[in-house]
Amino acid sequence: MEPGLRLTERYRLVERLDDGGTMEVWRAWDELLGRPVAVKVPAPAGAGPQRRFRQGVNRAAALSHAALETVFDSDQTRDASGRLVSFVVTEFLAGETLAVRLRRGPLAASEAAAVCGRIAGALEAAHTAGVTHGDLTPDRVVLAYGDAGVDVKVVDTGIGGVLRAPAGGGTEAADVRALGAVISACVAPGASEELSAVAARCTGPDAPSAAEVAALLVRDEGPPNAVLTALGTGPPGHRAGALPPPPPPPATARRGHARLAALALVAAIPVTAAAAVLLSAPRSPAAVPAPARTSAAPAPRTPPPTASRVTDALGRLRPIVSRGYAAGEIRSDVAIDLDNVITNLENDLTADRDVDVGGRIAELHDKIATRRRERGLSPGLADELNRVLATVRA
């Protein structure tokens, strides 16, 4: 595989990322939907591992949980030697792995409980559907930093294990033991007797289920990211609300963008993912001819909003949609629709194209109103989205 290659005439490879040894992972651009995605290709192997990989992808695609990586698509292509190989397309997660974060030091006990509680919840959802992870380590957990705090995502569920284990996939008990090891890795020795006890139970002979571990670690019923908003574990130079930029269209792609740790828009939407926001420099207001002189003084004209103000507002819409989906206040198809509208406007702004910002924001207002009438999203969520959009016109 090499940069610029197009898979199925749709996914253009942009940059190869860390692969963990058994898969090539690429940041790619979905030319059909105009959004960043991740493309994962297993290392060359025989027909058996390829078949197990496809079976794992099918199982992973059926999962739906806020802390599980979303699978979009899968297909086959030919490698440089002409062999037919499978690949999977997932959401693009802009952030860093938990393993990278832990190299800078352990988490506080409350932070570790919050992160590991999300991991346990993801395993619970997978196990309920009959799917095991098979290769859970801090390298398989992504911390995506955004306006709403830190979004925890477990990647390669049902996929990585079949490539690394001859029998393919592992067991639920093995997943729980691996979760115990992750909990232990997150906190300094002696920092929390409670977390140490949970980790010991996970690795002991009478281990709890993932659901029981989640119940022990999750203490509130607030929004998914509420306990993580003050995590403060972002990479050096990270500031609250600043996301790494999304990959540009392939013709202008640049290296050096935030690397993939396996996001994007809706962390939990079964069929979409989030693109990160590029805060572009303010653009000068368009020149407008002066109005004809009349006896009455002309009303003052409100200058058009700057691109930075618009992209900031669009970025604040994403966690609202994500939280609404997790709470059941928005249908997945509606979330996808809004995501596409937001992403397309962001792409136009970051490419410095001439954009009728006022018209596009009005269209987004209309779409929200229509979806509200169709009961595709709750009135409260619609009002919250409209309040953010109103700041663009203020």
Score class of each variant (00 low, 15 high):
276 A>E: 10
219 R>Q: 15
255 R>D: 13
158 G>C: 04
245 P>A: 15
144 A>L: 08
313 A>K: 01
225 N>I: 09
117 G>Y: 03
17 L>I: 12
63 L>W: 07
156 D>L: 05
392 V>N: 02
337 D>Q: 12
40 K>I: 03
376 G>I: 04
56 G>V: 02
303 P>Y: 05
170 G>T: 00
303 P>R: 13
50 Q>N: 08
31 E>F: 01
289 P>I: 05
283 R>M: 05
13 L>A: 11
282 P>G: 00
6 R>M: 14
370 T>K: 11
7 L>Y: 03
167 A>G: 06
56 G>W: 03
229 T>C: 01
45 A>S: 15
242 A>S: 10
282 P>L: 01
48 G>C: 06
16 R>M: 12
290 A>G: 06
47 A>L: 15
33 L>C: 01
348 D>E: 10
283 R>D: 13
78 R>W: 04
3 P>A: 11
127 H>F: 00
102 L>A: 04
51 R>L: 13
187 V>D: 01
334 V>I: 15
115 V>Q: 11
101 R>D: 07
376 G>D: 03
289 P>H: 01
287 A>Y: 06
280 S>F: 08
181 A>N: 10
311 T>K: 07
112 A>R: 12
116 C>E: 07
352 D>W: 06
316 R>T: 09
93 L>D: 05
378 S>H: 09
172 E>A: 14
245 P>I: 09
83 R>Y: 05
319 P>M: 06
155 V>G: 06
55 Q>I: 14
188 A>I: 00
159 I>M: 11
113 A>N: 05
262 A>G: 15
367 K>T: 13
306 T>V: 04
39 V>G: 03
237 G>Q: 09
282 P>I: 14
342 I>D: 04
16 R>L: 08
201 R>L: 14
223 P>I: 08
283 R>G: 14
101 R>G: 02
119 I>R: 00
24 E>A: 11
31 E>T: 15
227 V>G: 08
191 A>V: 00
226 A>W: 10
